[in-house]
Design a protein around this nucleic acid. Structure first.
Length: 155
DNA sequence: GCCAACGTTGGC
DNA sequence: GCCAACGTTGGC
């Protein structure tokens, strides 16, 4: 059963264009340092699951689609003292942080702004729209996913 | 830049 | 196990 997700990134840090121009259009989703977000990647994400790609901060919007290309494995950036996401409490023999690989699927011709999503019928319950929602990896229902894809193709 | 909403840390 | 202090996220 395909599941559906939303993954956030600051485009100044890593954008959907960065993903589209990666070798094989695949990137490890490293640097997540939140247990809830980690657990979704570690325990629930499966190969082929679909991902709404979300840009935060500059112009908050869903900008395209990606898919899970590799299931969870340790986030090695936690092992590198020179990496900004280095975590001494996540040693190689007992890793604390995990990540998946994500593959580019599609960039929407028109991104769907957060502000607009708030007005769409059927999305009222979306985790993303919850006040104070800060999760960078979160589940999306199939119906929410379908609605968003349909609108993205209409516009 | 502000600030609300969270998550984490650490003293007790 | 509680909770205050602190740091971070992310919309505005």
């Amino acid at each position: 059963m395909t599941k559906y997700w939303l993954m956030k990134t600051e485009p100044g840090c890593y954008s959907i264009d960065d993903l589209a121009t990666e070798d094989k259009q695949i990137t490890p989703w490293d640097g997540v340092r939140n247990y809830q977000a980690r657990n979704f990647m570690k325990d629930d994400m499966e190969l082929g699951d679909m991902v709404l790609f979300y840009h935060s901060v500059t112009s908050p919007s869903v900008v395209g689609l990606a898919e899970v290309a590799r299931e969870s494995y340790p986030d090695h950036t936690a092992w590198n003292p020179d990496d900004p996401h280095f975590d001494p409490k996540s040693p190689e023999d007992n890793p604390r942080w995990f990540m998946v690989d994500v593959k580019f699927v599609e960039k929407f011709s028109n991104p769907l702004p957060l502000k607009f999503l708030r007005t769409v019928k059927g999305l009222e319950g979306m985790e993303l729209l919850r006040k104070g929602s800060r999760l960078s990896v979160m589940p999306v229902t199939e119906s929410e996913f379908d609605i968003i894809c349909r609108i993205a193709r209409e516009s």
